[in-house]
Amino acid sequence: MKRSVLIAALLIGLSPLCAAQAQDMPGQRILQRIDTNDDGAISKDETTAARQRLFKRLDGNGDGVIDEKEIESARQAINDRAETAQARLANRWRHMDANGDGKVSEQEFASSMPLFDLADRDSDGKLSADELASVRKLIAEHAN
Rank of each mutant, 00 (worst) to 15 (best):
E108K: 08
I30L: 15
D124C: 01
N99G: 06
E70D: 14
L14C: 03
D117V: 09
A133D: 04
T47R: 13
V65Q: 15
S105I: 03
I78G: 05
D130G: 14
A90H: 08
K126T: 10
I139T: 02
I12N: 06
M113P: 00
K56H: 13
L127I: 04
D130N: 15
D45Q: 07
D67P: 01
A50L: 03
T48Q: 12
P114Y: 05
G40C: 05
R33V: 03
L10M: 07
A77L: 08
A140H: 12
K137Y: 01
F55T: 02
R57D: 03
S15R: 14
S134I: 03
D59N: 11
Q32A: 11
I78P: 00
K44W: 09
E131S: 09
T48C: 07
D124H: 01
Q23L: 10
R94G: 03
S15T: 10
F109L: 09
Q52W: 09
M1L: 10
D97Q: 10
A8F: 05
R92E: 09
S111D: 06
L127Y: 02
F109P: 00
I12W: 06
V135H: 00
E46S: 04
T36V: 07
L54K: 10
R121I: 03
S43Y: 02
R29N: 10
M113F: 02
A87V: 01
L11Y: 01
D38G: 13
E72M: 09
G125C: 07
Q76I: 05
E83A: 15
D124M: 00
L115A: 12
D130I: 09
A98C: 00
L10Y: 06
D45H: 04
E70W: 10
D67K: 06
D45K: 07
L118G: 05
S112A: 15
G100F: 07
M1P: 05
A8N: 09
M113G: 06
F116L: 12
L58A: 12
S134W: 12
R53Q: 15
A50V: 01
I78F: 11
Q52Y: 10
S73K: 10
K2I: 05
Q76S: 11
G40R: 07
A87W: 02
T47Q: 13
A22N: 11
